[in-house]
Design a protein around this nucleic acid. Structure first.
Ligand code: GTP
Ligand code: MN
Ligand code: MN
Length: 274
DNA sequence: TTCAAA
DNA sequence: TTTGAA
């Protein structure tokens, strides 16, 4: 590879470390002649997401120890319970799969007043669910949420920080990425499954569902009606636990900590693939 | 519409 | 594949 293009790919990689900068933006910045993150910081046209990403590039690359994840989660639970005890929340992602370290904190939120029809209404009106807005507001007031990346009807992406000094470093706790996802309570278990992952298991379960004439996603498991010409989503299969989904797919239940399939040789699960 | 993230 | 910013 020529020295010039080597330098270029180095810069591309450097810029893409910033959350909010993907392949297209990175190229654009290289074309502008930027050579460093400092050049980047002087660009007046960065998006808000990119500004936040740049501000915390180093911190976001650090893994979050499990005990800190637990501390962060406890704050969210306590804060939301104080404003409305009917909020239910569960940390998903790698944390729920038992990881000792995580890249970010993924939380799914439900509330008895937030139903499937609610979600549709909210999307139609392009309004933010008051229930999500309220939750975010409470967390911001507390000072727990320090920056936002995006906030919408049902999804919030932002930055949080545990208060006080981290005994590990004798420094303030680092800023951490946090995702809040509001899902209709009818879809709680399929949502939980989808957001716990891992990606590999999701793929396996979805293709398995397909074979069996179902369609599986975060919104539920449904029968698919197959006419000669087209396939349309049919009735929803009642799901009252994660086990139910495995059962319907004829798979043995897997505890969250057993769902780390990414990169694993899947001898054990091979029979359920293909 | 395009881009980025998950 | 879906959500949100711009
Ligand atoms: N539908 C869909 N869901 C995704 C996709 N990528 C990630 N997710 C979901 O988001 C969940 C959390 O994603 P991440 O936070 O990126 O990954 P993680 O497994 O928690 O790992 P770390 O956060 O890096 O520790 C995953 O379990 C997925 O179910 C995608 O491309 N499509
Ligand atoms: Mn995660
Ligand atoms: Mn995440």
């Amino acid at each position: 590879m020529s020295p010039a293009s080597q330098e270029e790919t180095n810069l591309l990689n450097l810029f893409q470390r910033v959350s909010g900068i993907g392949v297209v933006a990175a190229k654009k910045f290289v074309d502008k002649g930027y050579k460093s993150l400092e050049d980047l910081s002087n660009d007046p046209n960065l998006t808000h997401h990119q500004c936040v990403g740049l501000k915390y590039v180093d911190e976001f690359e650090k893994e979050i120890p499990r005990d800190e994840m637990e501390n962060l989660l406890a704050i969210v639970k306590k804060t939301l319970n104080e404003i409305d005890s009917r909020y239910n929340m569960e940390a998903c992602g790698s944390f729920r799969r038992g990881a000792n370290i995580s890249g970010d904190l993924d939380i799914i939120l439900t509330h008895p007043d937030f139903t499937e029809v609610e979600e549709k209404v909210v999307k139609r009106h392009k309004a933010t669910t008051p229930l999500l807005a309220q939750a975010v507001q409470a967390l911001e007031k507390y000072g727990f949420l320090t920056d936002f990346v995006s906030t919408g009807n049902v999804k919030y992406m932002g930055v949080c920080q545990f208060p006080g000094t981290d005994p590990r470093s004798n420094q303030p706790y680092l800023h951490r990425r946090i995702d809040l996802r509001f899902i209709p309570h009818e879809n709680y278990y399929t949502g939980l499954l989808a957001w716990t992952g891992d990606d590999e298991l999701n793929r396996i379960m979805r293709s398995r569902a397909k074979e069996l004439g179902y369609t599986l996603n975060e919104y539920g498991l449904r029968r698919r009606i197959k006419t000669e010409t087209e396939e349309t989503p049919g009735e929803k299969i009642p799901i009252n636990s994660e086990e139910d989904v495995f059962k319907k797919l004829g798979m043995p239940y897997m505890e969250p900590h057993e769902r780390n399939l990414r990169g694993v040789v899947k001898k054990k699960y091979l029979m359920y693939e293909e």
